[in-house]
Computed example of a mutant assay.
Amino acid sequence: MASAAREPGREQARMVRFGHARWDRAGRRLTVRGEAVKLSWKTAECLNLLVEARGEVVPKEELLREVWGAGLVEESNLAQCISVLRKALDPAPDGGSHIGTAARVGYRLAVDVEEEAAAPLVVAEVGGVKRGRYPRIVWVLGCVALLTVMAGGGEAYRRMERRERAAELLERARGMMRRSTLTEAEKAPGLIQEAIELVPGYAPAQAAFAEASARLGKTTFEASVELAR
């Protein structure tokens, strides 16, 4: 993926600004003109890839691969995400769009991206020695609490991502089962198994697996053995 060069030893700022928007890299949260905008995780990932590219074109193939994975995905899904972002962000300060299109190639952020510097630590001089305004223990406890919240939020985000991916696989499998060709139908159980591996105990996928096995003429015992592999 195209990305801006970073200075050696310099960490990325968590918050960035572009156009009328403010983007939280870690939390995947977008604010436009001071108001929070809720995005689906796929739309948020698309935006983050564009932000990190800093104006360079991100190919459609790369966006599809990074956000939707290696499976077959309709390009219309990407176009829908870009449309949602434009509706949330536009118009840009110059009256145009925040997101530009490179015909038949990909998309890019059409406004400058600026990193938002973290607030400096306020220090006070006591007895000739500079000390932080708050006791060290308060600072340490605050960091621990923040890391705990971020870790929990990250795990919840990953669970949601796995569940959405499982739902997509299940929908593709159902589409294959609706088709008349045996070759297409035989691919469905593999996709359903992948969905179950992503979300163990996913009841809709288990039911679909049993249905697919029945349509392919497998016995209940054979289907159970295959599902357990």
Results as ranks from 00 to 15, higher is better:
G142P: 06
L170Q: 04
I99R: 00
R108E: 03
A205F: 02
E125F: 08
P91A: 03
R131D: 04
E211K: 12
Q193G: 12
P135W: 09
R179G: 15
G96L: 03
P204S: 06
S213I: 01
S213V: 01
V123M: 15
D112G: 11
A117S: 09
A166S: 06
R131H: 13
R172L: 09
R162G: 03
G95E: 04
Y134F: 14
A92P: 09
M160C: 12
A88L: 02
Y107C: 02
S97F: 00
P93C: 04
L141E: 11
L198H: 04
T148M: 14
R165V: 01
A151C: 11
R108N: 06
L147A: 15
S180F: 15
L85A: 01
R172G: 11
E171G: 09
G142K: 04
V122T: 13
M150I: 12
K187M: 09
A207I: 07
V113E: 00
E116L: 11
A203T: 02
M150F: 15
A166Y: 05
E211M: 12
E197D: 14
M176L: 15
M177H: 07
L141D: 08
G201L: 08
L198W: 02
A119E: 11
L147H: 13
E168R: 14
R159E: 08
V126W: 12
R136G: 05
R215M: 10
H98L: 02
A110L: 04
R159G: 09
P189W: 01
P200T: 00
P135I: 02
A166F: 04
R158F: 11
R159L: 06
E211S: 11
A145V: 13
L170W: 05
L198Y: 03
S180L: 14
